[in-house]
Amino acid sequence: MLSHIQTVNSKLTTANCIHMSGNMNLTLKVWRQPNNDTKGSFVNYPAQNISPDMSFLEMLDVVNEDLVKKGEDPIHFDHDCREGICGMCSLHINGRPHGPKQAITTCQLHMRSFKDDQTITIEPWRATAFPVIKDLAVDRSAFDRIQRAGGFISVNTGGVPDANAIAIPKPVADEAFNSATCIGCGACVAACKNASAMLFVSAKVSQMALLPQGQPERYKRVQAMVAQMDEEGFGSCTNTGACEAECPKEIKITNIARMNRDFFTAKFFKQEEA
């Protein structure tokens, strides 16, 4: 028995050794751009001794520490909560938003998803409506303006209403909740070959169109939000489904169909104007 435990221990130690020496050396091909008015270009950086357990953003932190030590300008990128709920991190990694894995944000992407000696191309979200602030950080305030155009419910505040005072069938509540999980990261725009924001806008339209509280402004809202979406310079939808495949929260394109339905209903059958 004792010998067995020893064997296990020695195996663990060996495993640890492999692990320590299993750190990766990578080449990063990073988009550097001082601001939106200046043309950008790719610059190669080595990322050495990277643990496979690091998140992608931690790996960039390591590279940036080196750059700062050398007195160079660190790579600018967006991040905040680092637990996949704020929607702040972005990055187009090897041709895909939030990297090669599905249903996660970049902060939830680990370096074990890459191979030793691999070259990783890192780019910002590319869209007219998302101007580059610096390097990999883009200005996503277009999404805020779309929300401000109609992504809300006007109610008077007051006492807390009774629970279940308004009956909502469970499947409808679930569907609304699924739509509401959109974190507004912009991966849908980044993935879309037309840089269309339809998945984001449709999720925001849907979460309220599905619920009783959203009904009074339903047809005004959809017109206002679509108008703002067009004004921001996003492209139009060609139903490729790329947004749905890349969305870290797995928002479905059924939302887009719902938004289209509400938009055409509003335009052809309702009196409400945006």
């Binding site: 090897n94 041709g95 007219t128 409506a129 269309s196 139903n239 490729t240 790329a242």
Partner: peptide
């Protein structure tokens, strides 16, 4: 749609998320 993305991606893995026809 072209105007909506004036600078194209250096790497774009369209086949990973959408069918060729689309």
């Amino acid at each position: 749609n072209r105007k909506a993305r004036p600078v194209s991606y250096g790497a774009y893995a369209g086949s990973a998320n959408s069918p060729w026809t689309s």
